[in-house]
Structure formats: structure tokens, C-alpha cells
Design a protein around this nucleic acid. Structure first.
Lengths: 244, 244
DNA sequence: CGTCGTGTTGATCCCACTCAAATACGGTGG
DNA sequence: CCACCGTATTTGAGTGGGATCAACACGACG
């Protein structure tokens, strides 16, 4: 019998073919050989430490980033020191798109916790996308999802009441967790109250007060970063504009 | 001598090759035959009347829209009747990207004035983009610019002071007008105060008061929808975070 | 001239920001 | 295991800026 070829179990497990997020990145019904081709494009970094940056404002973009495990935030810095959280990025979600227009990043991407990330050189991706049917379409789709989250963000920001913003925020996070196959009703927030405040245009104290208010009203249960959504019905009502 | 072929002067003038926005849509250094090929994809509607809708929330996306002349707004509707202006769209700017993810539009696109628009079937565009070098890249670029404007919007919304939001708004509009070769220091607003308020998360009265305040402070001159930016320096300072 | 849509201005109220302080939490070293 | 420290979070009291309610001005158009 031939000796079995040496297989790197680690890299196999981390391959696109085995990835739990496969459906988020790859077109449906793609052939195994095409998966393999895409897989060879992907560079997988060693774990990203908490507070480590994937890219910086002003730096040239040459790759797209996909969170694979752990969460990130993207932060745009006002020249006078104030920073604004532009988005949070869960596994399967793209980062770096902000530079598609100018070629230069306009925000920093920072790991909120120890994380894993896939990086894809944009040049290569475009070349392959022109050849692999469905990949181009899939790329546009994930870009579209990213824009959809930005629109959600905008809709949060357009709410006048702090409690409404926080509620929409929790609802949105819940949906995204569910999309990852996790529990959408109970989860742990990967970001600080400060991050949430910046993201929602509120100060940290207001975020904190909103959480306790929502808890007093019986909508959620909160202890530190652990959150449980209690009344999906009332939450959805509130999300859809009713201010009762 | 052969009789000259019949030429439709109107459609020639409206062709991509002659379009003043050509550089915004097409890759640089593209060949004349490729321009022609793209040109044949584009459907040009008859003028869009004020308040007419290009597409509706919930409808399936099958094309991308480019404003060619005149301005549009995109509006997301809360189920309870409240509408939120998600963006304004000047000539050369894309509309319809909101549906890239799900395939269904999540806002309405409404003409703010009589307008012209180019429509490109997404299917066809993707097919040609896979073949014409640079077109795919250009598509990503204009999508990137669109996301950049959304980020600008978010940065406006993150300002606490109403005056700052309005100032950023005017600055952003000014930049976009300049990019079109128009006067960035004096222009006419295509949208109502109400639209601006919705866009910025302010009520109409606050928008109005902010305008008069900015005028009293000598930063702008306003009469109705006619706006002149007086101090580019102080405006830029204010934009970059200093709250003086 | 009257009407409607749009924009401005005034008076008042309320919610989120600000300042301040107490408390809980996580990690580190003894 | 516990004491300690820095960070994160919560809670309280007071203030200010934008929302709200209301009235009026302006221009386009029939």
C-alpha cells in the first residue's frame, strides 16, 4: 500500500471547503475545483490579538478582509482626536470595503477580542471573479450585505430616542448572531459600552441608562456584557417604529 | 457618392462616448469598441418627473440606476409612516445598490426635480464586466464611492451639534458639485429643508435655525435654496472637528 | 385674490449631555 | 487565596440644546 500523503490537518480544517462560513463567502453550487482555486487565494493570518489593527486610516488597500472568528470594529478618526465607531464586524462579514473608492482606507479595523481573519488580495480576487461563474455575483452580494448593515446603522442613528437606538442595535445584533447559527436571544456583547455609544451617537452614560431602562421595562435582561432578549414580540414592535 | 447613413443626433449626444459623466462610469483608457459595447447595455429613460419613483421598497432589483441629470433622494419607510432620507444622488452617482444583498430594494428612489437617468440591467453588466478589462474594477470603484458617501453621512449623523451636521452637509454637497465641474462655493439646493432634516436626523425648524445661525456667523449666505459658502477656511476647520 | 407648499421665527418643555462619584469587574502579583 | 489596581460600568444631580407646539412670511399658481 502506498504511504498516505502527508496532510496538514490544521490547514485542512481551515480551508474554505471545511469552513463553517463557507456559505457566506462562496457562491452556492460552486464546484470543488473552483473552491480549491479560491482557497489558494486566501491568506490566513495567525490569530489577531485584542486591540490589534488589521489596517489603518490612510493606508493603501490591497486586500479584502473577512472576519472568521471573533469580532472587530472599524473606527474613523476625527483629526481632533475624537473617534467614531463606523461598524462592528462578526464572522463572515467583510472589512476594508471603505477603500474601494479611493484605494485608501478611511478607517481603522480593530479586533475587539482575539480573532481569526482571512485576507484575500483584491487583484487576485478580481481576476478569479472574472472566470469563476457566480463568484463575481457573490462578491457583489456580500458587498450588498455590508451596505445593508450600514443602512441599518443609519436607521438606528435616525431614531430620536436613545432607548430606540439601543433597542434597534440589540435587535440587529441578534439577527446577525442568528444568521451565524448562534442563539439570537442570548449572547455576549463583544464591545464595550463606549463602543456602543460611539456607534449610536450616544454618550456612555446614556447607553448604560438605556440598558437598565430596557431591563426595568422587561424587554431585556442585562448583566455586564451578557444580554438576553425577553420579548421578541415587543422588541419587534418597537423596532418597527411603534414608540409605545 | 453614397447617401450618408441616417444618424439619430439625439441618441448620439446621449451615448456614453459623448457623456460628460463618462469618466464617472467608464474605466480610464477603455477602447472605443468596449465603450460601444457598454453603451448598448444602457437603457435611457425619458425624463423622470419630479416626485416620480425609479423603484420601490420591496420590489426586486434587476438593474442599476445612474443619475444623469437632476438629483434624487432615496427614502426608507418605517412601517409606521415615518420616512427617513437615506441619501441624495447627484449626476454620475449610483442608485439601487441597496438591493445588492437581498435582491430586493429597501428604499424608494424619488426624483427631486425633473431628471434624466441611465439604467443598466445587472445581468448584462456582470456578463460584460467579466470580459471587458477594467470595467469590473470600475464597478467596484463607483460602488466604493457610493459607500464613501454613506460613510460621510454617518459622520454627519455622529455630530452632536445641529450646526455641525448642517455644516458638514453643505461641505459634502459642495465637494460633490465641484467633482461635477460645477461651482462648489455657490449652488442651489435640490432638496427641501424637510429632506435635509430627515437626512441629518433633525426637525425642519432646527435645520432652518442652523442655516440662519451659520449666516449670522458669516460662514454662509442663504436665501431660500440658494447657498453661498463664504469662508472655505473656517468651514474646513469646522468640518475637521474643531467646534470653535 | 386666495390657496397651498415651503420656510422662518418665537416660546416652552424634555431628554440626553455634562460633571461627579460610587461600584463592579478582570487581571496581576504576592 | 487574597489584596490591589486599572478599567469598565452604573447611578445621581443639574444644565442646555433640540424637539414640540404655534404663528407667521413668502412665493408659485390657479
Amino acid at each position: 500500500m502506498e504511504p498516505a500523503p502527508v496532510i496538514d490537518l490544521g490547514s485542512l480544517r481551515r480551508s474554505c471547503a471545511q469552513c463553517s462560513l463557507r456559505q457566506l463567502c462562496l457562491p452556492v453550487g460552486i464546484g470543488a475545483d473552483d473552491v480549491d482555486r479560491i482557497d489558494r487565494l486566501v491568506k490566513r493570518r495567525k490569530p489577531v490579538a485584542r486591540n490589534e489593527r488589521l489596517f489603518h486610516t490612510g493606508s493603501a488597500m490591497n486586500r479584502l478582509y473577512v472576519a472568521r472568528e471573533g469580532a472587530f470594529k472599524t473606527v474613523a478618526g476625527n483629526e481632533d482626536g475624537e473617534e467614531q465607531v463606523m461598524g462592528f464586524h462578526l464572522p463572515g462579514e467583510l472589512m476594508g470595503l471603505d477603500a474601494l473608492g479611493t484605494g485608501q482606507h478611511r478607517c481603522d479595523a480593530i479586533a475587539l477580542e482575539t480573532a481569526q481573519v482571512c485576507e484575500v488580495p483584491l487583484e487576485d480576487l478580481q481576476r478569479v471573479a472574472a472566470e469563476v461563474p457566480g463568484l463575481q455575483r457573490q462578491l457583489l452580494r456580500v458587498i450588498g450585505f455590508s451596505m445593508g448593515r450600514d443602512q441599518d446603522h443609519l436607521e438606528m442613528m435616525s431614531r430620536r430616542q436613545a432607548g430606540d437606538r439601543v433597542m434597534l442595535f440589540l435587535h440587529s445584533l441578534s439577527q446577525r448572531f442568528e444568521g451565524l447559527g448562534r442563539d439570537g436571544a442570548e449572547f455576549s456583547l463583544p464591545m464595550t459600552r463606549e463602543d456602543i455609544g460611539s456607534y449610536l451617537g450616544l454618550v456612555i452614560e446614556t447607553v448604560s441608562r438605556s440598558f437598565t431602562k430596557l431591563q426595568d421595562d422587561g424587554l431585556i435582561a442585562v448583566r455586564g456584557r451578557q444580554v438576553r432578549l425577553l420579548s421578541a414580540r415587543r422588541l419587534a414592535e418597537a423596532v418597527h417604529g411603534r414608540t409605545n
